[in-house]
Design a protein around this nucleic acid. Structure first.
Lengths: 219, 219
DNA sequence: AAAAAGTTTTGATGTAAATCAAACAAGTAA
DNA sequence: TTACTTGTTTGATTTACATCAAAACTTTTT
């Protein structure tokens, strides 16, 4: 939550996030078509968001972890246009959007925070477009691993090892490639000594090598 | 602009969009790295927004026409993270973001409008992710043409014929394919009698055929 | 503990799109 | 007009990744 509040302010802000909900692994926090009422701040657990076509093709549009917000897609049409699925048991703060808007009018610093949140999501998606439109499989997976470990590290976890919460198929969907290609690329990185992989456990041995694959210029 | 204002309100709102700027074809409304100050409402003309890597690869992230807003990418870091390039001589309303935020606090209907704008952009990008991650060249181009003609029609232009403002290479960059593939796909559609193409002139002869290519289920 | 179901890895083969290359068309300058 | 530049189309070839298939590994169920 943004700083710059006094105690009284904080109490008002608390109202907006008073209610919490648990979401079981595999179940949806919200689904395509659901009426939009709230944003959700993830307290614990791990989510994916995804859209799908009529004919059943699914595109993962993001993976979200503690401290991140889901639900912004619902604002424009008062209905959600994607699914948010818990990849492990999770707990979220429910923030009714009407409250968010009301308090935003009262607290410019909160207003700014909300705007930055939405802008950040737009910029993030721009980056994924670059990945999908211009990058090869190895570059995509390198970027994915670097991004994941950076976010985990910012939350106090190791910057070298972690356990993936998502399947090869979900990684593939996010990165626009098939699960076999994801697996092969993991194996290739492993053979080259850049990472150590055992199923969903990953340890990054040579972060600079990953950075070089992702962005050959700046290394 | 959103409705639900009285005359006095309208005058206040006018302040926010008091200044206008012309942008010459080929020049940038803003560039990656520029300090963020304002959003821009396109009055006339046509823009592309794009991001690029160190090594010079470019990804077009969107095409914008009259009535649409550019600049939302800049909010999160107080600097723009993409380029907005005029594809034809254009005129924009400059909306200093500080003013937008101030008036948003005063007018809930404007606040809601701003939020929807940003959410719409997020949802739009979700759709492009689906295109790039899951669809074949023909599906991408069909979706592109249908979207373009729908937006043009909403602005009073023909729903069957138009002149592209962007090159094959720019279309390709947006859709994650090479210019030759774009050209070949145009030719294929043309041979099948679905569209008529002559360079940048396009006439849609069989909109239903395009819809079927894009989404085989609902047709 | 055995069986079943789901996930990941690895191999063999196929293919959509990229790349390379050249001709063609349209617009602009000399 | 001719030359020059830029964008588009079309053909031949290559390639990165997808698809198909099967084995190996994990987890869940009985």
């Amino acid at each position: 939550m943004p700083m710059g509040f006094n105690l009284e302010d904080m109490q008002k802000l608390d109202e907006v996030v008073a209610t919490r909900t648990k979401v079981k692994q595999g179940s949806n926090l919200f689904s395509h078509g659901d009426p939009f009422t709230s944003l959700y701040a993830i307290r614990t657990g791990f989510f994916k968001t995804c859209v799908s076509t009529e004919d059943g093709r699914e595109q993962v549009t993001g993976f979200q972890m503690a401290g991140e917000i889901v639900g912004l897609d619902g604002i424009v049409n008062d209905h959600h246009s994607c699914n948010a699925v818990a990849l492990e048991d999770a707990e979220v703060c429910v923030m009714p959007f009407a409250n968010v808007e009301e308090l935003s009018r009262e607290f410019p610093v909160l207003q700014r925070h909300v705007h930055k949140m939405m802008s950040r999501e737009i910029v993030r998606e721009n980056g994924i477009l670059m990945l999908l439109g211009n990058m090869r499989a190895e570059e995509r997976l390198a970027a994915f691993l670097l991004n994941l470990v950076q976010r985990l590290h910012a939350r106090g976890f190791s910057q070298s090892e972690f356990v993936l919460r998502m399947s090869r198929e979900e990684i593939g969907s996010y990165l626009g490639m098939k699960l076999e290609t994801v697996s092969r690329t993991f194996s290739k990185f492993s053979e080259e000594g850049i990472i150590e992989v055992k199923q969903r456990y990953v340890r990054i041995l040579e972060p600079d090598a990953l950075k070089k694959i992702f962005n050959p210029q700046t290394c």
